[in-house]
């Protein structure tokens, strides 16, 4: 499993007919509303994710970040509004949008190797995916740890395992729920670099975070959420909006 593949792994290559493929991979949300236990968790949120972009979704705890990601993946049904991938409603093409869950939702003590975990990204596909798994592992720099158990990894390595699993799906849209939470700064830097590379390779990434300090500068675009979209722009544009929100500014810790 450790040997290097001579060519760039197939799943990382951009489609030849770029413009056609990119249209189909636009993820659009229109006027999403979601109520939970009688409370309005999301209020008319609209957004479009375009391929090749690295977008941050910031907001305080309880601002609806996780809910929005689950709505965008079709795991939750909105009380109003709709989600589209290209011309299709999301429920018809859920495998083409990958959701990387919060790390607290994973049972890290489960008896499974890194390799097998990544292979689950194609759980419904027939076998003969070995090359893809090796390529995904190589992409996130974990090929040497393929045979380890998940609980023998560091937090950052665990997050990269989840990312590799998402790369196994036939998805060009990746939704990452707090991938940088509870991992140390070097691991966070590495993960951000990796996300940048994926965006440059044509994926669209939406990354939720409650960290809106310096770290925001690596993103192309930042969405500020507090049940509704408060701001949407480049990190510089949004920073003004963030500091204006004094209660949110208090949370900023870099």
């Amino acid at each position: 499993m450790g040997e290097t593949t001579p060519k760039r792994p197939a799943l990382m290559q951009l489609p030849a007919a770029r413009s056609v493929a990119l249209e189909a991979d636009h993820l659009r949300a229109q006027d999403l509303c979601f109520a939970y236990e009688g409370k309005q968790a999301l209020d008319h949120v609209s957004l479009t994710l375009v391929p090749g972009s690295l977008t941050a979704l910031v907001g305080a705890n309880g601002a609806g970040k996780s809910t929005l990601l689950h709505l965008l993946q079709g795991q939750l049904m909105p009380t109003a509004g709709s989600v589209w991938l290209g011309e299709q409603p999301i429920l018809r093409c859920r495998p083409r949008v990958a959701l990387m869950p919060q790390r607290g939702r994973i049972d890290w003590g489960f008896p499974i190797t890194v390799w097998e975990m990544v292979a689950l990204g194609q759980v419904q596909a027939p076998r003969s995916i070995c090359c893809d798994v090796d390529a995904a592992l190589q992409r996130v720099g974990l090929e040497a740890l393929a045979g380890r158990r998940l609980d023998a990894l560091s937090g950052g390595q665990q997050q990269r395992t989840l990312l590799a699993r998402a790369l196994m799906q036939p998805a060009r849209v990746l939704l990452l729920d707090e991938p940088c939470a509870a991992i140390d700064p070097p691991a966070r830097q590495q993960l951000l670099r990796l996300m940048r590379q994926l965006a440059d390779a044509g994926y669209s990434l939406l990354v939720s975070s409650h960290d809106w300090g310096e770290a925001l500068d690596v993103y192309d675009r930042v969405l500020v959420l507090d049940r509704r979209l408060l701001a949407d722009g480049t990190p510089a544009q949004v920073r003004g909006a963030l500091t204006a929100l004094t209660d949110m500014g208090n949370h900023a810790c870099g």
């Binding site: 993946q73 869950p101 994973i106 049972d107 499974i112 689950l120 759980v123």
Partner: peptide, 19 residues
Amino acid sequence: YRSLVYLGVDPDGAAAVGL
């Protein structure tokens, strides 16, 4: 087998991929 593994290690993810 593989569905059970997925469901055990990551129940939310299992639902998300439509198991």
